[in-house]
Design a protein around this nucleic acid. Structure first.
Length: 204
DNA sequence: TGCCAGGCCCTCTTTAGGGCCTT
């Protein structure tokens, strides 16, 4: 059984939106949760081997100067593969972080076994009252801890971890007899919105 | 020259279009 409160929550900052267009990771941040507690963190800038455009410099606060002396992807991903070994993975809009993790691991011929879960897909189902499902909005809406830093990898991963734990709490209250597993959350995340209320009733 | 991210999700849908999310 893979409990949802035992995961690595991760976030990439990148040169753009698509590794298929040559975009690369420039920072990775991650938080390790064990029994719902943060027990470890990972944060590293990554030299992408290309200049970062001014939009990304402004958006992330990560400058070309900061990346000049950063480790290259192979070094960082080698460390990160050890960090996530044996853990499932969570991200906000996981399809984005998964495609970059897959691409960066592929460059270094690395592999991982964990399943991904997505706090964005889950939020759309269990927080339908939220004004929208951007990470920053949800942190505000649910009054989650934050230090006011956005669009840096460890800060975003940490906020996502608080969102994730909040979401597990919400589900646990509605399903008091159920173990909240990655499989259960991915099942809920795949249901049509209109079926969520009925599904939770039948499972409770 | 023409391409330019892509999966999810809703709707005035399914022979489609466009907004939401991530950088």
């Amino acid at each position: 059984m893979k409990l949802a409160n035992q995961v690595v929550v991760l976030d990439f900052e990148t040169t753009g939106l698509s590794p298929d267009n040559g975009d690369r990771a420039i920072e990775i941040g991650a938080v390790k949760l064990v029994n719902g507690q943060i027990v470890d963190t990972f944060q590293e800038l990554i030299n992408p081997g290309q200049r970062v455009n001014s939009f990304i410099e402004q958006y992330t606060g990560i400058s070309n100067d900061m990346l000049k002396h950063a480790l290259v992807s192979k070094q960082v991903m080698g460390q990160f593969s050890k960090f996530i070994d044996g853990f499932n993975l969570v991200a906000h809009n996981a399809s984005f972080d998964k495609k970059f993790l897959d691409a960066e691991f592929s460059h270094s011929k690395l592999h991982y076994n964990g399943q991904f879960a997505c706090s964005l897909l889950l939020s759309r189902r269990i927080s339908q009252e939220a004004p929208n499902h951007k990470l920053g909005t949800l942190v505000d809406h649910h009054q989650l801890p934050n230090d006011g830093v956005f669009h840096r990898a460890l800060a975003d991963a940490t906020m996502t971890s608080h969102l994730w734990l909040h979401q597990i709490d919400v589900l646990q209250q509605q399903l008091p007899k159920q173990a909240i597993t990655i499989e259960l959350i991915n099942k809920i995340s795949s249901l049509p919105k209109a079926q969520i209320a009925r599904y939770l009733r039948t499972m409770s």
